[in-house]
């Protein structure tokens, strides 16, 4: 078991109101799974992803990744965990505009004080695998949407993470490019044994997952594995 979530709760205060975004979610995810999380807007799916990724702190409950309880980590420990054990893919790619494709890919390791010369071969290899051989020195404004998302995927893979978290990875792409990205993610799971958790609105995108979890009103409504 790679991920274990138990009784995870998250409440927000908005003005005088307290909003329960997650109402005690519990679930486990194994290595090599491609989990698609679906749900309507405001259902709590992004909150769940953020808590799994250590981007937010839970009000109560536990998130264990590879037996490591994220809720107990300090900020420096959590930051280090994110850069070395987790990979993130965002809807808007979130690449740094001033860095080249190669540097963007290497960023998590550079933040870990590793030298570019050390990490460059791996970043280069990943970009080449993703079909970006001729784009290494390009900055984001010189890349297409699909290329940017592939750089983001390379960045998510650079530290060989335990878990890849994707938040609407195809939400800002046309359907053809989106499909290519989803196939790439499936391939990563299938061929390389990576574990991916993807939040999406799109049922077609969710079909690429090996497991579908539906969230509604802060609770798991449905959790099924595909055959």
């Amino acid at each position: 078991m790679l991920l274990e979530i138990s009784e995870l709760k998250k409440t927000y205060t908005q003005g005088n109101q307290t909003i329960e975004a997650l109402k005690g979610v519990s679930l486990t995810i194994d290595r090599g799974e491609f989990v698609a999380i679906m749900g309507p807007s405001g259902s709590g799916k992004s909150t769940l992803l953020h808590l799994i990724g250590g981007l937010d702190r839970a009000t109560s409950g536990k998130v264990l990744i590879n037996q490591q309880n994220l809720t107990l980590l300090s900020d420096p420990e959590l930051s280090r965990f994110r850069r070395l054990k987790l990979g993130f893919i965002f809807q808007f790619f979130n690449l740094l505009p001033t860095l080249t494709a190669l540097e963007n890919t290497a960023l998590p390791l550079l933040l870990d004080d590793q030298k570019l010369s050390q990490v460059e071969p791996r970043a280069k290899a990943l970009l080449e695998q993703l079909g970006l051989k001729g784009r290494l020195d390009h900055t984001p404004d010189q890349l297409s949407g699909g290329e940017m998302q592939r750089v983001a995927i390379a960045r998510a893979l650079v530290s060989d993470p335990l878990l890849i978290l994707a938040d609407e990875p195809t939400g800002n792409l046309d359907s053809k490019t989106g499909l290519a990205i989803l196939e790439l993610l499936s391939k990563m799971v299938r061929d390389q044994g990576h574990t991916v958790i993807m939040v999406t609105h799109d049922p077609k995108a969710a079909e690429h997952g090996t497991r579908l979890i539906k969230i509604r009103d802060g609770a798991v409504e449905e959790d099924r594995r595909r055959a």
């Binding site: 420096p76 930051s79 280090r80 850069r83 070395l84 965002f90 979130n94 740094l96």
Partner: peptide, 16 residues
Amino acid sequence: TRELGTLRAVGMSKAQ
């Protein structure tokens, strides 16, 4: 803000 969020997400600590 969003860029700083990205940096934090990919592993930049508060101190950094």
